[in-house]
């Protein structure tokens, strides 16, 4: 997995709550059997008009937001289906971090498996970021933020700085880009012991 330490990038504000994974990546694109190539379908039904051209009214289609790597959204981001295609699509499009007041549990987990940092901030701080982004864009500039996983901090150049919560083990895995399965299989003796204690030894299939 790609490690994540510190990211400085442009922010794309998406002023919507309850953005569900059906919107992030609609079902017609879940038939692919690869992990890659989903970025072109990100937010497909919002992003494109029926004739296939980009919808100029959609937030992410604003020219100033092209190339953004940090998505800023409202409450309950990533709710709904467990599809990991959602973080795959966000990452493939270029996002490495999503900032929101709250996230749905499964989406939140899935981010960490894909080198992305979900940043939970207080609603008032998210509001402040929306304000700052709007001000920067009104002045013709993309708003820039830094997500510093080493120090669990989000900050800009204009005095905004907040720490965000992150589980220390997940942080460690992301900083180092560790393979979660390798890490777990280090405990294979304990897994086997659990199986033996629960009478599963005779049932066990392939050894790992």
């Amino acid at each position: 997995m790609q490690p994540f330490t510190t990211l400085t990038g442009n922010v794309a504000p998406l002023d919507r709550a309850n953005v569900d994974t059906d919107q992030i990546i609609p079902k017609q694109f879940l038939k692919r059997i690869e992990r890659t190539g989903f970025g072109q379908f990100l937010f497909f039904d919002w992003r494109f008009l029926p004739d296939g051209s980009p919808d100029p009214a959609f937030e992410l289609n604003q020219p100033i937001r092209q190339g953004a790597s940090i998505l800023l959204a409202r409450r309950n981001f990533g709710c709904g289906s467990s599809r990991e295609h959602a973080p795959w699509a966000l990452a493939d499009y270029g996002f490495r971090s999503v900032i929101a007041p709250t996230f749905a549990d499964i989406f939140f987990n899935n981010c960490f498996q894909n080198g992305m940092v979900p940043v939970k901030l207080d609603e008032s701080d998210v509001e402040e970021l929306f304000r700052r982004a709007a001000a920067a864009e009104a002045a013709g500039q993309a708003y820039r933020l830094t997500v510093d996983l080493q120090n669990c901090l989000v900050h800009d150049d204009g005095g905004f700085s907040r720490s965000f919560p992150v589980d220390s083990f997940r942080r460690h895995c992301l900083l180092e880009g560790l393979d979660n399965i390798d890490l777990s299989l280090k405990h294979v003796d304990q897994i086997t012991a659990w199986e033996n204690a629960h009478g599963l030894a005779s049932l066990k299939g392939g050894a790992t």
Partner: peptide
């Protein structure tokens, strides 16, 4: 995500992402 259904029988059942599917396949944990 609708794996929660199985909890109706008194199980702890929940949905996971594809990376976790791979993890469970490999490590049963």
């Amino acid at each position: 995500s609708h794996t929660a259904t199985h909890g109706a029988l008194g199980a702890l059942a929940f949905g996971i992402g594809t990376s976790e599917v791979e993890h469970v396949l490999a490590a049963q944990t």
